[in-house]
Design a protein around this nucleic acid. Structure first.
Length: 262
DNA sequence: AGTACCACCTGACGGC
DNA sequence: TGCCGTCAGGTGGTAC
């Protein structure tokens, strides 16, 4: 699930339900998702409250005390869900933050690819990881400048979190579809105008997704995301959607429409 | 620098 | 209904 819009939705959910409430208890149901020991996590979170949140790319940071934050990442199947005590936590809940007010925030991860870690500050952490600017914060000029000299395939470049933070498999396909660019195009073969167009499409797509709560079913019918299936009819021409591998990831595209530099 | 492949883990889904 | 293969919105490591 979680690309930039999904994590943005989780951030808003946390902000609306769980901010400024003291954590009474941290329940670890599967420590596979913890980078620290349960004891370390508890030590930094128990009797503290989530003061503010920050999203960078697909990462959610939660401020717990001075110069101590939680880093949450969600892998391919993560989510956050607030529920009230007395109710069952959602399926695949791996950790629960119980608040004093009888509410609780569940960290959900079916495949356990996600992680929770106590860190110092988001800035230090991001620098160490080498992540690029968040896709929604990046300027058009920086976008063009960073991509223009890359020699990798455009889809791989878009998904590289060290280049731009936040784009994943589904939205990379969407951007390239709307820009009519073949996913295997060498990035440095794109013109500045094509890169600028790609940037505009990226912003519009993420804005649309954010407005629709990252729900693919609510996205416009002209979007590829509602037709991500082999053999499906392209919403823009009579062609059929094809599936290929790019950078090891399944890639859906329209061979009729996406002919730029292919 | 770029790519291919594997690993992590737990399913959901379609074909027979 | 059951078994089996394939796929899955991410990332990190290795090897070439």
């Amino acid at each position: 699930m979680p690309e930039l819009p999904d994590v943005e939705r989780m951030k808003q959910h946390l902000d609306e339900t769980s901010l400024h409430k003291e954590v009474k208890r941290v329940e670890v149901k599967d420590k596979a998702v913890l980078d620290n020991s349960p004891q370390t996590l508890r030590r930094h979170v128990k009797n503290h409250s989530f003061d503010k949140t920050k999203r960078v790319g697909k990462n959610l940071f939660v401020d717990i005390e001075s110069d101590r934050w939680l880093w949450m990442h969600f892998g391919m199947t993560g989510d956050l869900k607030y529920f009230t005590n007395g109710n069952e936590p959602p399926k695949y809940t791996r950790a629960v933050f119980h608040f004093h007010d009888k509410g609780a925030l569940a960290y959900i991860s079916r495949r356990k690819f996600g992680s929770i870690q106590v860190i110092e500050t988001p800035k230090k952490f991001i620098d160490k990881k080498g992540w690029g600017e968040d896709a929604m914060n990046m300027s058009k000029e920086d976008f063009v400048e960073i991509l223009r000299n890359k020699r990798s395939m455009i889809k791989s470049a878009l998904m590289d979190q060290k280049v731009i933070a936040g784009i994943g498999n589904v939205y990379a396909d969407e951007m390239l579809y709307q820009s009519r660019i073949h996913p295997k195009t060498k990035t440095n073969e794109l013109s500045n105008d094509q890169l600028k167009d790609l940037y505009s499409k990226m912003k519009r797509i993420f804005r649309t997704a954010n407005n629709n709560n990252a729900d693919a079913k609510e996205m416009p019918k002209r979007y590829l995301i509602t037709h991500r299936k082999e053999g499906e009819e392209c919403p823009d021409c009579s062609g059929e959607i094809e599936r290929i591998k790019v950078g090891g990831r399944s890639t859906y595209f329209c061979p009729e429409c996406q002919t730029v530099n292919s």
